[in-house]
Amino acid sequence: MSTATVAVRHRLAERGIDRQLLLLVPATVFVVALFIYPFAYGIAVSLQPAEGGMLAAYRSFFTDAYQRDTIMTTLVIALPAALLNVLASVPIAYRMRGRFRGKRVLTTALVVPITLGTVLTAEGLLNFLGPAGWFNRFLTTTGLADAPVRLTNNYWGVFFSLVITGFPFAFLLVLSYLSGIDPSLERAAATLGAGWRQRFLRITLPLLAPGLATTFCLTFVLAFSVFPSAILVGDPSGSTRVISIAAYEAAYVRYDYAGGAAAAIIMGVVELLVISIVLGLRGLLYTGSTAGGKG
């Protein structure tokens, strides 16, 4: 091999271009075939409505209040649920980051709901929180409430369902972010006179915040695409008529594929908007190493 070709190969390798790049081919094919192609196909379908111009499906979505309001309905369910999941994870994960007896059992108990399907969760919710469920029977027999409190087949049913399935996810993420923060930082802060509140607010929280933003984005996306629980434990024609129901109805009830695709694309755009706002704010934070030094 001549020295010239060697030199070219070295120069390319220094820019990260070498034969190992071929290892990325299967993953790229996978992403293109299973994500980019269907996504592009969806956009194309949404732009070819049966009647009207290219943007007719979008226009009818936004002009029809019954469709348009699903965006707000979904946001009103998904944003608080995601926020609660993240905020509730922080103190629990904070207490659990050290080693202690029974940590495995407790972690398992907190994470098990992730393995339950939404349908099982919905059934449990109906049995427990429903009008004739244990919770309401407890309230009425003890006299704490005169009539059963309505906690299912409305906003709260969906909200609880999203918390039950979303919390383990947020908790696991937050726990791993927290374990990545060098514990000697808080100890150093303590020797410098910081009480637990200041240690948390000035050391741990700033280092954890970027992780919380990422966790929020992921749980928000999960919550925003809520579908089964909005029907099973919600009020699918009223307060929990979420955007995925609108898309489903358009595509499989009215057979308006362009309308369904448009709703799905709008759903994606709203998610992207929320995520870019959160990640934009995250960019303002310190996002470097969370170690206290060498070693």
Partner: peptide, 14 residues
């Protein structure tokens, strides 16, 4: 009211 220097320095990275 003691000062401590840690083996890994434990400087606040942010």
């Amino acid at each position: 009211g003691f000062g401590m220097v840690f083996q890994n320095y434990a400087l606040f990275p942010h």
